[in-house]
């Protein structure tokens, strides 16, 4: 199966310039947008360059069922950012790990750092809502367990523009006291805001039973392990540029664990 996929890629290359077919969100800064301004867009360019392939985008919102509706519909073969452990795709070794942050107005008093903060229940706190059956974002559930529900404001990920943008605007307008966001989405809008927003790393509550940080990798069509291996090698060769890119976009990063050092099993097809 691995050979079949590899041959298909090569055969395409003889007939026409090789293509790296990437699906990406058209409006999800700082990750991606249709003008190619996000860090995942820059990652795609870097990988395509390493593979000697032409970059071809299919722009699709990353919504429920996005793998089925994109790679499953043969629009593309690759998503640049998916969590390790996301079993609908083959994944490379992760290229970063991030966690959750609290965004507050820079002029606010001491920012929240933990769920044990006694101010928690009295504050207006924004969190993201994914809206998938009974699913929850870990910080949302942690807030509920800490007794913070009345002041918590949910921002569905379905809506006009990125949730981080909507929450940053509400912070700046004093409609929120704090926003808890997935790290990579927070830094960009905090930095852009003229009023000045502060980003603080948030620790998981003691004994919390859900993951509070995630390692992110490139996701590849399950039938294309050879392409996954090629991209994995490219990421290793260009690790320094990848790191600089993440820093340039203000991505709060945590140490990658052992999973980043383990070589990807060649030709694995789950």
């Amino acid at each position: 199966m691995a050979w079949a996929a590899a041959i298909a890629v090569t055969a395409d290359a003889t007939a026409a310039p090789r293509q790296l077919r990437v699906c990406a969100e058209p409006d999800s800064m700082p990750l991606s947008n249709a003008r190619g301004a996000g860090f995942e867009n820059r990652m795609a360019e870097l990988i395509a360059g390493e593979l000697g392939a032409e970059l071809a985008y299919a722009w699709q919102p990353q919504r429920r069922g996005f793998v089925r509706k994109t790679i499953g519909a043969d629009l593309c073969d690759v998503w640049i950012g998916v969590p390790v452990g996301f079993d609908r795709l083959l994944t490379t070794r992760p290229y970063y790990r991030s966690g959750y942050v609290v965004v507050t107005r820079a002029d606010a008093e001491e920012p929240l750092r933990s769920f044990a903060d006694p101010r928690l229940a009295a504050l207006r706190i924004g969190v993201q809502l994914v809206g998938n059956d009974l699913a929850a974002t870990p910080p949302g559930l942690a807030l509920a367990r800490a007794g913070a529900v009345d002041g918590v404001v949910g921002y569905p990920v379905y809506g006009d523009g990125p949730t981080a943008e909507r929450m940053s605007a509400d912070l700046a307008a004093d409609r929120l006291d704090a926003a808890i966001l997935w790290g990579p989405q927070a830094g960009w809008f905090a930095r852009r805001d003229a009023a000045g927003l502060a980003v603080t790393t948030l620790r998981a509550p003691d004994g919390f039973d859900l993951p509070f940080d995630f390692a992110i990798a490139v996701g590849v069509r399950q039938s294309m392990p050879a392409l996954r291996d090629e991209i994995d090698s490219a990421l290793q060769r260009r690790a320094r540029e990848v790191r600089a890119l993440l820093d340039a976009y203000g991505i709060p990063q945590l140490e990658l664990g052992a999973e980043a050092r383990a070589p990807a099993p060649a030709g694995e097809s789950r």
Binding site: E25, S32, P61, Q62, P83, G85, L134, V157, T163
Partner: peptide, 16 residues
């Protein structure tokens, strides 16, 4: 839980 992902946001889905 399973790891899932929507709109650039990782989360944990209830594994029904």
């Amino acid at each position: 839980y399973q790891v899932s992902y929507i709109a650039g946001t990782p989360y944990v889905g209830v594994d029904m």
